[in-house]
């Protein structure tokens, strides 16, 4: 790991970090505050290309806010956010960032309730995003086949013609993951993908994510420690807006600061 927990980086004089050449996401000294409350406090985070990273942390640690920053929903007060080699994300809007190849699953599953499962995937499918293109778009057989295969993956083939709004909570999570897949992003951000799922579903999700991670970079935020352990990847611990520990699950769990954060107070 290039660094572990750089929560002391001063604002005025950013410490030059060794940005590894193959990083896909690079956050340096990112701070954001809401009405004086610092949700992120000079956060540093580097995800390598092809890596799967889990992020844990107590409620309000800033995990979702971090994703908001990356996907353009929230603008950072200070700091740099780079995608790939040198694409600065802080001045792009959500759609532009999505089109660069960053996909996101929300903490609260959001699918399009009055479209069918099939249509949800159809909209997500990687294809022309311009208005003119959507107006004259025709579905090709190859696209249809791809959607069917995603349906298979997320186990919703039977429900392809049902409305998104009629799905159960867990199924919505799955559908959102499916939409994420259909987008074919380079980097996927998943905010609590297994919340509300049964144990069996959770296990299946872990398997699915591992599968996905073979050809995507992945950032997974979760509270479910067992699930995170199953992912078997580097874990970053976020607390009060900065990373306080980083390493394998076992290493992190032994860290006294992490123990204090989770058990103290």
């Amino acid at each position: 790991m290039p660094f572990a927990g750089g929560f002391n980086v001063s604002m005025s004089e950013p410490v030059p970090l060794n940005k590894p050449a193959q990083s896909i996401l690079y956050l340096e000294g990112v701070s954001v505050s809401f009405d004086g409350f610092k949700a992120l406090n000079s956060l540093n985070l580097i995800i390598r290309r092809g890596e799967m990273r889990a992020i844990i942390g107590p409620n309000g640690a800033g995990k979702t806010t971090m994703m908001d920053i990356v996907t353009g929903k929230t603008r950072p007060d200070t700091g740099r956010v780079l995608f790939g080699e040198d694409t600065n994300l802080t001045h792009l809007d959500e759609a532009e960032i999505a089109n660069l190849g960053i996909g996101r699953k929300f903490q609260k599953p959001t699918v399009f309730e009055s479209l069918t499962v099939f249509e949800n995937l159809y909209l997500a499918l990687k294809s022309g995003r311009r208005i003119r293109e959507t107006l004259f778009a025709r579905m090709r057989g190859e696209q249809q086949a791809r959607i069917e295969s995603y349906l298979e993956t997320i186990r919703l083939t039977e429900r392809r013609d049902d409305l998104g709004g009629d799905l159960s909570h867990g199924q919505k999570q799955w559908l959102e993951i499916g939409m994420l897949l259909a987008q074919e992003p380079e980097l996927m951000l998943l905010d609590e993908p297994v919340a509300g799922m049964s144990d069996a579903e959770t296990e299946q999700t872990a398997i699915l994510l591992e599968e996905i991670s073979r050809d995507h970079s992945l950032v997974v935020v979760e509270h479910d420690m067992e699930f995170v352990r199953d992912l078997d990847c580097v874990v970053s611990v976020l607390h009060e807006g900065s990373v306080i520990a980083e390493g394998s699950m076992d290493v992190v769990q032994a860290d006294p600061r992490v123990i204090e954060v989770y058990l103290g107070r």
Partner: peptide
């Protein structure tokens, strides 16, 4: 807002 994160304007 979800539509935006899919990359549509």
């Amino acid at each position: 807002s979800r539509v935006r994160f899919l990359g549509y304007s």
